[in-house]
């Protein structure tokens, strides 16, 4: 079934659900998904972020879509992020710090000594709050329509009606 998205300004009763919690699960999902998407997957950071996505009770759907979208963006920005990573890693002032970090257990598994990992990690950290904020604004404005649209979706209704997964994602 084709999605028929009609954007309109939500009413007050619809916005109430998004303002009840400290961290908006959809926006947090988007921000964490952005981190997952940007950072290369063959490091220890990837499972840590996935677990964080799960335990933070953020939206898995928004996390999934965000990570997929930002994975593509990550490849597009590889040149820039690698230069950034190399700049940070080869800085003489930071060298003692990196050496100390490198000697810590498990840390080398994060692959921080890789320019792509370091560059993307820095980018993810920089973009985390802006991404959260922008997502929050967007979701606050149009989240209820997505919610309604998803709930009206046949596949969703099929899954819910069969109790296949009871409320697996954190829709408000």
């Amino acid at each position: 079934m084709a999605l028929n998205i009609r954007l309109r300004r939500p009413g007050n009763h619809e916005r109430q659900g998004f303002e009840r919690e400290l961290w908006n699960p959809w926006a947090l999902g988007c921000a964490l998904g952005m981190c997952i998407g940007l950072i290369p997957k063959d490091t220890l950071i990837f499972p840590v972020l996935v677990i964080a996505l799960f335990i933070s009770m953020s939206s898995l759907w928004s996390g999934l879509f965000s990570s997929l979208a930002f994975a593509g963006v990550s490849y597009l920005l590889d040149g820039l992020t690698q230069k950034l990573g190399a700049l940070v890693l080869t800085s003489e002032k930071l060298e003692p710090f990196w050496l100390a970090v490198y000697d810590l257990p498990l840390i080398p598994w994060t692959g921080f000594s890789n320019t792509a990992v370091m560059g993307n990690t820095i980018l993810a950290l920089i973009l985390f709050y802006p991404c959260y904020r922008l997502s929050y604004i967007f979701i606050r404005a149009y989240g209820p329509y997505f919610d309604r649209m998803i709930k009206q979706n046949r596949v969703y209704r099929f899954i819910v009606s069969r109790d296949v997964v009871a409320r697996v994602e954190g829709l408000p």
């Binding site: 590889d78 990196w98 000594s113 320019t115 792509a116």
Partner: peptide, 10 residues
């Protein structure tokens, strides 16, 4: 080729 280059601290 993987993504990026590894900076060898050791």
């Amino acid at each position: 080729k993987g993504r990026g280059h590894n900076v060898l601290f050791r």
